[in-house]
C-alpha cells in the first residue's frame, strides 16, 4: 500500500544519511581527480582527506537513524550490515589474492561505497524475509 506518512517519516530519518553520503561520493571523485591532476599541490593532504568530513556525518547519521528504529527494523539493518561486511571481506581478500597476478590496485576509499551498496542489498534481502505476506 502507498503510505505517504511512512514515506515522509522515512525520508526525514534517511536525510542525515544520504545527504552526507552524496557529499562523500562527490568529494571523493573531486579529490581523487584533483590529487591525480596536481600531484605536488600544497594542500593535497587536506584535499585528499576532505571526503572524510561528510564521512563523519554519515557515520553519525547511521547511528542516530538506527537508534530510532524499532526492534525488527534494527534487526533487518543488522542483518544487512552482516551481509555487507561478509561480502566486502570476501571481495577485498579475493582481490588481494589476485593483485600479485597483475590485477590493478583498488583505491581503498571506494570500498566504503561498495559496503554501502551491499548494505542496501542485504537490507532488501532481510526485508523480504520478514515482510513477505
Amino acid at each position: 500500500m502507498f503510505d505517504l506518512q511512512r514515506i515522509k517519516e522515512r525520508s526525514k530519518l534517511l536525510r542525515p544519511i544520504f545527504v552526507p553520503l552524496i557529499l562523500y561520493i562527490g568529494l571523493l571523485v573531486f579529490s581523487s581527480n584533483w590529487v591525480e591532476g596536481n600531484p605536488d599541490g600544497p594542500n593535497n593532504f587536506w584535499i585528499a582527506l576532505s571526503p572524510m568530513l561528510p564521512g563523519i556525518f554519515f557515520g553519525l547519521g547511521v547511528v542516530k537513524a538506527i537508534s530510532r528504529l524499532d526492534e525488527l527494523e534494527r534487526k533487518i539493518r543488522l542483518e544487512g550490515m552482516a551481509f555487507s561486511f561478509m561480502i566486502t571481506l570476501l571481495l577485498v581478500v579475493s582481490f588481494g589474492l589476485v593483485e600479485p597476478l597483475g590485477f590493478p590496485r583498488i583505491n581503498s576509499a571506494y570500498i566504503a561505497g561498495v559496503m554501502v551498496v551491499l548494505w542496501l542489498i542485504g537490507k532488501l534481502w532481510a526485508m523480504r524475509k520478514y515482510h513477505e505476506e
Binding site: 503510505d3 511512512r6 524499532d70 526492534e71 525488527l72 527494523e73 515482510h131 505476506e133
Partner: peptide
C-alpha cells in the same frame, strides 16, 4: 505499541517473534 506497521504484520504472520519487552 510504538513500532512500525510492518513489524506488527511480521509478528502476526509469524515471521518475527517479538522481544520480551514488546
Amino acid at each position: 505499541l510504538g513500532v512500525s506497521r510492518q513489524t506488527v504484520n511480521a509478528i502476526e504472520n509469524g515471521k518475527y517473534d517479538p522481544s520480551l519487552p514488546l
